[in-house]
Amino acid sequence: MKRGGPVIKKCYVFFNRNTAMFFLLLAVFWPGTALPQTALLTDDLGFKLELKSCPQRIVSLAPNLTEILFALGLNDQVVGVTRFCDYPAEARAKTIVGGLVDPNLEIIQSLHPDLVLGFRGNPQSLLERLRRLSLPLFVFEQGQTFDDLFRFITRIGQLTCRTRAAEELVNKMRQELSATEMAVSREATGKKVFLTIYGQGNGLWTCGRDSYMSHLLEKAGARSITAEVPGNWLAITQEQIIAGNPEIILILCQDEKVFEKARKSITELKALRKIKAIKLNHLFFLEENVFSRFGPRLIRAYQQLVHVLYSEIPGNPR
């Protein structure tokens, strides 16, 4: 609550001092940068949300939303999170409203939120029910590129009266991004990569054309063997992997221990033994928790990826 104080005060001072004319000009020429006393915003599903003041009780329905909220300094304003919101550690101290697909309406209602942030992965029927309970819901579409991510963060900043903090965060991320990008552009190799996620049910899964992972790989100078296949997450067969013949296999998993298991299970697949990546033993670990959140840590994911692609592979010098 304390942290939110000064910003709100600033809003009031701001409006009291200025003339109606200036207010009008501001509204026309500078819309959306600071949250006026009543802001009408449209979410990614086309629904309008009217915010009368800066949200003080925010419920987040996705881990990446929670991360962004905390990164914007809204630690005290966040009152409810999902059971998957484990970053930053403080998020775990918040009331858990349920999962991504099964948040408990009663718990959300009992928190009396003045802003509920949802994303497109929440079931549509759930979002519709929340709207009918007249809860102030705002839904985001998951993006694909870093630009999408920056826009995403900026909009959350606007919603929560943290325009400045969002701007700073985005600038910092942009800087880190371009620093890492430099390393890539010098040595862009276009290596073929098979990125997979381990432990998600049966079979092998990989990212498709519409996944931000594919964009991340592209930006790191690599290319997913399924970069052309439409879809977000795809089930892939061993035959498709053989056809793609990747030079590098990246495995997203919880930790190094799980990675060893995953590495073994993939290298033991007889059919794949002639794949370049397996012959060269180019199987690498990526931290699932960092990679699976379309939020501020995506930069870290990018850095990890570049590190793996350019430092850990012999003959692929930085």
Binding site: V101, L105, G121, P123, S125, R129, R132, L234
Partner: peptide, 24 residues
Amino acid sequence: FRRPDAYEQAVFWLLGSFSLAGWS
């Protein structure tokens, strides 16, 4: 199969739930 993310939406119908019940 074509859209794995639609799966969760389908699960609700395949298993049954009243979690979203309302007056309307």
